[in-house]
């Protein structure tokens, strides 16, 4: 589904990604771990198409199609979803109106009519119940005054509404207490199918107890320095990242 080939990217004059190779197939869960500043969030932003990052070499290919020229919204229409580490507050736009706009814009891109209001409401109800989101919450301005946990839960709610083929969860576990973490992980697991894929970016192993990865990759200094199965995450939790750094230097 997703194929990243020798990806190099920079912001301003700083090289951040220095040759990433990664293949994600439908039905798989991948975890990308690594110390702070290793390039995890940059990788997520580059896949989603953030313009500030300049791809200097290599490619991001979705279903055989190079995404190089696609704007972020076009990538979204093709099924890429990024759950933000720091979701942006948009005062004045309610969660409900935001979701209506997002869904109908995606439908428009696919040549479909707007979703009927009744169907939309049913979908919103169903997905918000799944994530144990209070109805009142949906009429509040998007992310404005939300706690860290509420913001993250709202990200997964958006994911549930948009049903992406490839979901990238950037540090979704940070700021979540254990109850919220379970709800979020449970939501992600319910959305998982043989047709979609999830890439979990995290610093800690904790989330991976709930969203169990098929593959774990360790990112260091803009490169994937080690890949393995889910047991690699446990090893990292136990030993920290220093041994990876040392190994990489050697």
């Amino acid at each position: 589904m997703l194929k990243i080939n020798d990806l190099h990217a920079r912001v301003e004059d700083k090289d951040i990604l220095k040759g990433i190779n990664l293949e994600v197939n439908a039905g798989e869960v991948h975890a990308i771990m690594g110390p702070n500043g290793s390039g995890k969030s940059t990788l997520a932003s580059v896949i989603a198409g953030k313009e500030e990052f300049e791809v200097t070499q290599g490619s991001v290919v979705l279903d055989g199609e190079d995404l190089e020229d696609d704007a972020p919204e076009e990538r979204a229409h093709k099924g890429i979803f990024l759950s933000f580490q720091y979701p942006v507050e948009i005062p004045g736009v309610s969660v409900t109106n935001f979701m209506k706009t997002a869904i109908n814009e995606s439908r428009k891109a696919r040549g479909l009519e707007d979703m009927p209001a009744k169907e939309m409401l049913k979908l919103i109800r169903e997905k918000s119940e799944m994530l144990e989101i209070d109805r009142k919450f949906l009429s509040r301005s998007l992310n404005e005054g939300f706690s860290g946990g509420e913001k993250k839960r709202n990200e997964i709610f958006q994911m549930a509404m948009l049903e992406p083929r490839l979901a990238i969860l950037d540090e979704t576990d940070s700021g979540l207490d254990i109850d919220a973490l379970r709800i979020v992980a449970n939501g992600v697991n319910k959305l998982k199918s043989k047709d979609n894929a999830v890439v979990v970016i995290t610093h800690y192993q904790r989330l991976l107890e709930y969203i169990v990865p098929d593959f774990v990759h360790v990112l260091h200094n803009g490169k994937i320095v080690k890949s393995g199965g889910k047991e690699l995450a446990l090893e990292l939790e136990e030993k920290g990242y220093d041994w990876i750094k040392n190994e990489a230097v050697v």
Partner: peptide, 8 residues
Amino acid sequence: FYLQTRGI
């Protein structure tokens, strides 16, 4: 960027 990643 946030709004764009949601397809807007």
